[in-house]
Design a protein around this nucleic acid. Structure first.
Lengths: 223, 223
DNA sequence: GCCAAGCTGACACTCACCTGAACGCAGGGG
DNA sequence: CCCCTGCGTTCAGGTGAGTGTCAGCTTGGC
């Protein structure tokens, strides 16, 4: 999916863009409405993430203008918690969904997938790894047909691997993913959670690459 | 599908009716609540499109009256942007969905198809969960053959789960669903209603996934 | 054999969740 | 008009699952 992100806050913008890319989508990031209008004229997007407060205007005006041209691209609005009236205005102007700041990046991923599903018509995308089935949108994992219950952290870690099937991931990378930036973890948390995942899903779900990190394994003995 | 359109604006009404017909459904168009009441007594509809501002009364009153007679016909409310309180009233009165004016006729078609799918012409749209039977169109739940009475909120919450059987739903998602887009609820309402549902329907109807949300339990059909 | 890197079982602490109870409010009947 | 009932919502106390940390053990490289 090709996603246009309209957000002027540099920190949030970068975080969201990284998440989008990490989810395997293409991301165009602009910080002003003028650039956004240029972008939507230049290319077709599958989804637009729209901040409401921007330096050169209000997002809802942009949205209304977009809709008036007949453009039906799904638009997800990013709002602060106290901008209730603006949010309603955005929905009435034709937004399809909204997210309240500060939002969870996981929730963002889930919503983006939901949009993709709605407009692509296909049901839930299943990822298969040997006898393991992963439903990313439902956050459920089955092994040999049996549903395996994962905790929040376990799922977060596992999702990181599933989303980048062949990529090697270092422990600092994974820590960053699990704990954003602020939290400081000075222990072997990742090792512990890798162990817990292996216990629940089989020893070969995650492969250790000594001195470098981990990557998704090849359960079922396929290769 | 047979659809009743209650809308006094001639331009919008005609457009919507034409769209309905173009989609291959049957359309009855009335402009006043009196006519609407007459229509629902005379024939059974698969869907009612209901404007809230009508010359001879408020749509939400019509809806409440309809529900009080036990009529469970799906109702989609058509609202203008500044009728926020009315919109909430309508949802509380038992609306299944709503569309904000001005809306895309394309979206209208999509929503109608969604309703059609949800209540797909099977004579018995029964969902079975262990010893629990759910009739979405009749808004009734039976447990071990015994009908269980759910309140409006309880049903709204339960329906959210039943409609997406395997989907994990976060508390913010569920709050959205129950309270539309306006209310800022900072409390444990969802927890309370989950507890009440469990009390009425059994502890395992809804499964808690700590830190992530809830999903439908698997009293008999998980695996 | 030695060292570094990774594995794992155990454990205390926290907080997300559960739950009973109380309050406000609206609707209906007396 | 007022009381009564039922629903929705809030609150506070208690609890356990989830989490991070650590110590001791295993594995792999040289």
């Amino acid at each position: 999916m090709r996603i246009l992100l309209i957000e002027d806050d540099p920190v949030l913008g970068m975080a969201v863009r990284d998440q989008i890319v990490a989810d395997g989508h293409g991301a165009d990031w602009v910080t002003r409405l003028a650039d956004a209008e240029h972008a939507v004229h230049a290319a077709a997007f599958d989804l637009i993430l729209l901040d409401l407060m921007l330096p050169d205007g209000r997002g809802s005006d942009f949205l209304r203008k977009l809709r008036s041209t007949g453009d039906a691209t799904p638009v997800m609005v990013l709002t602060a918690r106290d901008q209730i009236s603006d949010r309603i205005a955005a929905l009435d102007a034709g937004a399809d969904d909204y997210l309240v700041k500060p939002f969870d990046l996981f929730e963002l991923s889930a919503r983006i997938r939901a949009v993709g599903r709605r407009y692509a018509g296909n049901p839930n995308p299943l990822v298969t790894l040997g006898d393991i089935e992963v439903d990313l949108s439902a956050r459920s994992v089955r092994r040999a047909g049996q549903t395996v219950a994962l905790t929040a952290r376990e799922w977060a870690l596992f999702e990181a691997f599933v989303q980048r099937p062949h990529q090697l991931m270092s422990k600092p990378q994974l820590e960053e993913r699990l704990y954003s930036f602020d939290a400081e973890v000075e222990s072997n948390t990742i090792e512990v959670y890798v162990a817990r995942l292996r216990k629940k899903l089989g020893a070969d779900v995650i492969e250790t690459v000594r001195g470098m990190g981990y990557r998704l394994g090849t359960p079922g003995g396929g290769a």
